[in-house]
Every structure is written in C-alpha cells, then in structure tokens.
Design a protein around this nucleic acid. Structure first.
Length: 476
RNA sequence: CGGGGUGUAGCGCAGAUUGGUAGCGCGCAUGGUUCGGGACCAUGAGGCCGUGGGUUCAAAUCCCGCCACUCCGACCA
C-alpha cells in the first residue's frame, strides 16, 4: 500500500498546512471552483449533490416539525433594515446595496438580503390579525449575501446558500420552545447524517445574532483543533415584532406583539464535513451524505462477462436504495481508485475476471482503508450493512477526537496554554471585559455556554465567582 | 482595512540577474498496445507571458502605476 506521504503531492500536507489542505481538497475533488467575483464560489455538481442531500434530510425534519416552505424576495428596502437598531448595526458593514437599476438611480436603495428577518416580519405583520393566525412557521431555502473581508469556499463566501426558518408565536414560551426544538433538530441532523458531533448551548451577548434576545448554537471541532459554528437558532423575543408591528388580537381582546424565532444552517456545513473527517488522501464522506456511497470499478472490462456482471451488481445496489455509481470510464483501475478515494466515496467495489470466477468482489472502505472479499450473492445487503458500520464508526471516531480536545482550565495561564487546538471549558464571570480580554490575548472566543453545565468555581480571566461555564476555542 | 504570497497553455512551474519575440511536466486529442493501486508508445492541438503606461531598434524579462486571486489578522454562518 502507498504511504501517506505519497498523497502529499496531490494535496498539501494537512499537518503542516491545514488551510492549504482544505483549499486543495475542495478544488481538486470538484466540490467547488472560484467564481470571477471575489469571495464567490461555483458549487459544482459533486458539491451541490452533497447540498441536495443535506436539503432533503433537513427539509424532511422541518416538515415533520410543522414547517412549510415559502420564498421571499432577495431585495429588501434599505429602510427595513434600519428599523431594528441592533440588527442594522450588526449587518450594515457587510450588506451589498443596489442603488441603480432599470437605467436609473433608485428612489430607495435596495439591500441584497444578508438574512431575511426584516422582510419576513414585514409580511408576517400583514398576515396576522388574530391569535388564530398563529403560529406562523415558515422556512425558506435561499441565497444570501454578506460582503465579508476574508472569504473561503463554503466557510465564508460573499454569497452563500442556506435555509432560514422564521416563526411567529403568541407566547414567549412557545417561541422559546420552537427555538430549542430547532436547535435539537440541527444537533440530531449533524450527528446522525454528517457524523459530526457538536456542542450545543447558548451564545454570549457578544456572540449573539444582531437583534436577538438570545442565540443558541452548535459548535463542531475541526481536525486542526479549531471550532466551527455549524448552526444557530435565535430567540428574537418581541424585538422584531415591535420594529415591524407584528401584532395580533388575543383571546382577551387586547392587541399584543408576537414572539418570534429564526434559525439557519448554510453550505458551511459542507466545510464542516470536510474538516471534520478528511485525511491526507482527501475527503472522507459519511455514507448518509455521500453522493456516491458505493462505486463499482470494473477491472479489465474488455474480458468476457466483466461489464455485464458489473452492471448487474450496480443495478442490484441501486434497487436496494444505495447511491451507487458504475465507473466505466476509460481510465486505469489504479487511477480510479485514487480519484474515488480523494472524492471520499465510502465504499469501493472492484469486479474483475478473478472475482467472477470466484463469485466474489473486492471491497475497500474509505474510512479505515480496510479491504475485504465479499460474496456477490447478497452484495446489496452486505454493502448496506457496511455503509451503516462506516457511518457509525465515523461518528465515534469524530466524537473521540472531539472529546480528547476538550480541556478544563482553572486560571488564565492554563487557559492560554490549553486553548491552542482545544475547546477549553472554564468559568466566566459574565463580564464583557473578560470576554474581550480573552479574545485579545488568545484569539479565542466564547463558543457556547453548554446547557447541562452549572456554573462553578471562578472566572478564568479575573478570578471572580463564575456565573457561567463556557466553552472557549479559536474559531473559523 | 493591515501584513505576506502569486499572476507565463486547462493545472503545476521554468525562463527574468545578462532584453532578441516562449519552454518543461501533467492534462487534453487521435491511433495502437494495456487494465487487480495514479499504464505505455507514436503523432498532434493548445499561450497578445494579469493589465495600463514608460525606456529601447527590440520587453515575459528593465522602470512606474493599476487590477485580480490567495494566505494570515480585525469583522462574520
């Protein structure tokens, strides 16, 4: 077997230069290409196929929790953005604005949505008259634009794809329950589909969404020891209701402001997938999101029977619901092995003259690189089982890695040492000054305050009694 | 916005110090032989050398400006 180091020629050494490794992998596996405008990306078919699976999986979960899809315009009157003070302050620096259209200067500038709370709340206000009209639970799959300074494919691009759920409720309890429910939907999705274990919890004031009462998020650990915010769910209270006059007449005959929530995940999840599971050979995709779960590679397919047998096995896998591909391209087998390994296909099946003689196939799994011989008889069943085994193994492996990179720190010196490449769990007094100082001196930020952690001990920064337990990390 | 890097064929690069009108590897096309870990032979196609100006008989090469991309920070999904 080839040594790991041989694969450095294809993509940068992930231990020596992780960012370059990431860039090499996303480009060379055909997930994306750079667009002509700075910070934009073309999501190529292989990358988009992953996104489509993410969409399908999430959409089913949204529907199951009572949401429906709709679509709102991407152009938002500039004045809308200004109605919620914190919101405009947070987003103003990164919005793209259309000032000229149809051959003339526009009377009112149009913001290209960086997120859609404003326009959606404006519409919701029209649609709600009575408590009977509530709750409103809508999700939209859309693109948004945020003019970021530093961009990287999937992780941060000027334009990206996401879903944003927006709900309005009659009571605070209901809106909060919605917020927490969707966070849980995200957590479950991340772990069972992406095989990426996450920490969930509340965000600090500093880190929360501009305009929210509270933001909750999930954080995943990447292989370089940095954290990636993988999804957020916001409890908006009545902030947007007041800014957009979302009022309804309640049972008691009084006009009341609605309580709202919003929640989203983006194509960044694909970045999470890559950086949580990849290796020196490239992508390692968990079967549940792999566009090609099992690739069949015929060997010496000019020999009698090979082509037919490969096609027969392919169709058996497809019938069993496996996303299979028969790679009959005119390249050498070794070339295909390497390409599919780089592209992260979970299972590779080789079918050659020898196999046909013996009634077996040669099967290699991507996660462990182990190989085995399996009988052709009942192949679909054994491959399905193998795919599930791989999925399970990848989650376990990721969880073990993540857990081995969580450390606790009692004082600031420990903290500074530990925060390189780890989540650091520690006490925090709740003061912004300490949070700012930690960031200034260590580049680490408060990722989440885990729900199940009681505050204990002292603030890692100032030594005063801790009000919260926080996970800090350097983040993307 | 600050700091670094890079722009020459689809990709990766050489050529620049010593100006003379562009080359290598991979890839691509065709034909043949191959096919169980990145095959081989032969033939062939492909480049206003990022861009604008300057110096010169002559600029990929020297000088000045600009632009783009990329990486690292501050801002963010």
């Amino acid at each position: 077997m080839a040594k790991q180091t041989e694969f450095v020629r294809e993509v940068a050494d992930m231990k020596a230069d992780f960012p370059q490794w990431y860039t090499d992998v996303v480009l060379k596996t055909g997930l994306v290409d750079y667009g002509p405008v700075k910070g934009t990306m073309v999501i190529r078919p292989y990358g988009y196929a992953i996104w489509e699976i993410i969409q399908k999986e999430l959409d089913a979960r949204f529907k199951a929790t009572g949401h429906r899809n709709a679509y709102f315009p991407m152009f938002i009157p500039e004045s809308y953005l200004k109605r919620e003070a914190e919101h405009v302050e947070g987003f103003a620096p990164e919005v793209a604005v259309v000032t000229y259209a149809g051959g003339a200067e526009l009377a009112e500038k149009l913001v290209v949505r960086p997120t859609s709370e404003t326009i959606i709340c404006e519409m919701y206000a029209k649609w709600m008259q009575s408590y009977r009209d509530l709750p409103i639970k809508i999700n939209q799959w859309a693109n948004v634009v945020r003019w970021e300074k530093t961009t990287r494919p999937f992780l941060r691009t000027s334009e990206f794809l996401w879903q944003e759920g927006h709900t309005a409720h009659a009571t605070e309890e209901e809106a909060l329950a919605e917020t927490m429910q969707m966070l849980e939907v995200y957590r479950e999705f991340a772990e069972t589909v992406l095989a990426v274990p996450v920490f969930v919890g509340r965000k600090t004031e500093k880190e929360k969404f501009a305009g929210a009462v509270a933001t909750f998020g999930m954080e995943a650990m990447m292989l370089d020891g940095k954290s990636l915010q993988a999804g957020t769910s916001h409890y908006l209270g009545q902030n947007f209701a007041k800014a957009f006059n979302m009022q309804f007449l309640d049972r008691d005959g009084k006009h009341k402001y609605a309580y709202s929530s919003s929640w989203g995940v983006s194509t960044r999840l694909i970045g999470a997938l890559i950086m949580a599971h990849g290796d020196q050979r490239g992508l390692v995709l968990p079967p549940h999101v792999a566009p090609v779960q099992a690739v069949i590679i015929p060997i010496a397919d000019h020999r009698p029977g090979v082509r037919e047998k490969a096609a027969e096995l392919f169709s058996a896998l497809e019938k069993a619901g496996i996303r299979a591909e028969l790679d009959s391209r005119d390249y050498s087998p070794g070339w295909k092995f390497n390409e599919w390994e780089m592209k992260g296909a979970p299972v590779r099946i080789e079918v050659g003259p020898r196999d046909i003689e013996q009634g077996t196939v040669f099967v290699a799994r991507r996660d462990t690189l182990e190989k085995q011989t399996l009988p052709m008889e009942g192949l679909a069943g054994s491959v399905s089982a193998l795919l599930e085994e791989i999925q399970k193994n990848m989650l376990e492996k990721s969880r073990a890695f993540r857990d081995s990179h969580v450390v606790t720190a009692g004082d600031f010196e420990d903290f500074k040492e530990a925060v390189n490449g780890n989540f650091v769990k520690c006490g925090w007094c709740g003061d912004r000054a300490c949070e700012d100082r930690i960031k200034e001196e260590t580049a680490a930020t408060a990722r989440v305050m885990p729900f199940d952690e009681e505050a204990s001990g002292t603030c890692v920064c100032c030594g005063k009694p801790a009000k919260h337990t926080v996970l800090f990390a350097k983040a993307y």
